[in-house]
Amino acid sequence: MPDPTIIPCLFYRDAPAAIAWLQRAFGFHALSVTPGPDDTILHAELAIGPAVIMLNSARPEMGWVSPRDLTGLNQSVYIALDDVDAHHARAVAAGAEITHALADKPYGGRGYSALDPEGHFWSFGGYRPDLTATA
């Protein structure tokens, strides 16, 4: 049996615009996009390297809302990268709202955080957890 895989699933008011922005600013590419009625997205899978996220249009009737509909953040996504400096430059050039400046981290690695246009909190860095460690 394969190891478990964790895949964040995010909700957007304007999922088609979010897909385009995530590709331009953060370097994702679409694996699949299933459109829905009225310019919505029923399901999309985006990848950056081996990391995958899923996203779809917000559906408030099911409790699926964009962070813009909340009073605070309830989650964040961290993606480990090899060249975080180049990734940061790409995000800045695309107009990403940088919330935590690119810096060396006391726990190791180097990283930064940004908000996407709908308020999802993203962190990118060179830190990778030691999967052989036990608590």
Rank of each mutant, 00 (worst) to 15 (best):
I7G: 03
D116A: 03
A133D: 02
P67W: 14
H87Y: 15
R68G: 05
G63V: 15
A89C: 09
D85F: 09
P60D: 02
A96R: 02
D69A: 14
I98F: 01
Q23M: 02
V77R: 03
Y112Q: 01
G119Y: 08
H120R: 07
D82H: 06
A114V: 02
W122F: 05
L31Q: 12
P2G: 05
E61V: 04
N74G: 12
S32L: 08
M62L: 05
P2V: 12
Q23N: 04
H43D: 11
F11I: 13
A18H: 08
D130K: 04
R24F: 00
M1S: 08
P117E: 03
T71M: 08
A15T: 05
W122G: 02
A51F: 07
V92N: 01
R13C: 13
A103F: 14
H87C: 08
T71E: 14
A18C: 13
L55A: 05
E61K: 14
A17I: 06
D69V: 00
M62R: 09
A89E: 09
L70M: 12
A93I: 11
L115R: 11
D116N: 01
A96F: 03
V84P: 00
L55K: 13
A103G: 06
S113V: 04
S113E: 11
F121C: 06
A101Y: 10
H87M: 06
A51I: 11
L81N: 05
T34S: 14
P35E: 13
N56F: 05
